[in-house]
Write a protein that binds this DNA or RNA. Structure first.
Ligand SMILES: [Zn+2]
Ligand SMILES: [Zn+2]
Ligand SMILES: [Zn+2]
Ligand SMILES: [Zn+2]
Lengths: 153, 153
DNA sequence: GCTGTTATGTAATAACATAACGTTTTCCCC
DNA sequence: GGGGAAAACGTTATGTTATTACATAACAGC
């Protein structure tokens, strides 16, 4: 989400709470805590990173605690899983579940989520040409972001 | 590679041997065995599937045995890793290391490797627009292949 | 044959994820 | 407000994927 300032984070969480109410699903304390952690982080977080953070205030937490919350947040389209990193990031435009394209800088660890119509169109075309019905496109580009490339010189 | 017939498999392995010689790298017995296993399989193979197969004839094999061979084959562009499955498939057109797009049927497990210029172009454009230099595009589409969709009815 | 390099053996462990089952909480209908 | 179903959570154990670390062996060039 890239909204690390406390104010906008609180606002975003409030919006999410409304969204969940509207959908008839429950944003429990644990789910909210996990979502907040992921959103606060400027880097993708591994499940066990999240677990460690939660255990600071709730020592009884265990892997299922985290994975259940992550499953919920994924299903609600509030976070994404980066398969190439085994890590999770907040969604840049939460709402309906969706897939995006992710630019992953291997130098600084920053991740940018895109939703480029051109990419989505070409993926749709190529799938259709093969008679394939895609339900979960995964597009992850590892590389070097603009800032890190400049720094290299 | 989708070449499961013994004859073409042998031919392909011979070609690969030449390729490695030309590059000054060694296609050792273990690497060759792993490549053959992956190519023979009509489904993506997990590292531990490969390990189990190898241990049948070589009981001393251990995880690093397999992962080293896989690393070599990946570096040489002879196989691909499917991040969404934690599994490995033979490359459809081995040669230089490269990235493709993968259609993964969740019904039958078949994987199709594409190298669509349209997709690659749109990915290049979107990366360039962000000032991002991608070195490893990963595109995997989970869904249902043509054959399985027909069978469903 | 000596030497630096590449490949392999071996053991242990790290990192990521799920199964299984019982208990608690919440929600909804009566 | 009480009872029952569903959802969420606690807890323990285990499964699965991948790596570290260090010792040994095979190979190539001198
Ligand atoms: Zn998103
Ligand atoms: Zn960067
Ligand atoms: Zn390929
Ligand atoms: Zn299929």
């Amino acid at each position: 989400m890239a909204c690390r300032e406390a104010a906008s984070l609180e606002a975003a969480l409030a919006q999410v709470a409304e969204l969940c109410t509207a959908r008839g699903v429950r944003l429990t304390a644990q789910r909210r805590r996990v979502l907040e952690l992921v959103w606060r982080s400027d880097k993708p977080m591994g499940a066990y990173d999240i677990l460690a953070a939660i255990q600071a205030e709730q020592p009884k937490a265990a892997p299922p605690t985290v994975y259940r919350a992550l499953d919920f947040l994924l299903a609600q389209g509030l976070i994404h899983k980066l398969q190439s990193l085994h890590a999770y990031v907040g969604c840049a435009h939460p709402g309906q579940p969706h897939a995006g394209q992710f630019l992953i800088c291997t130098a600084c660890g920053e991740v940018t989520e895109l939703a480029d119509p051109g990419v989505e169109h070409s993926l749709g075309k190529v799938a259709a040409a093969s008679g394939f019905v895609a339900d979960a496109p995964m597009v992850e580009l590892s590389g070097t972001c603009c800032g890190c490339r400049v720094d290299d010189e």
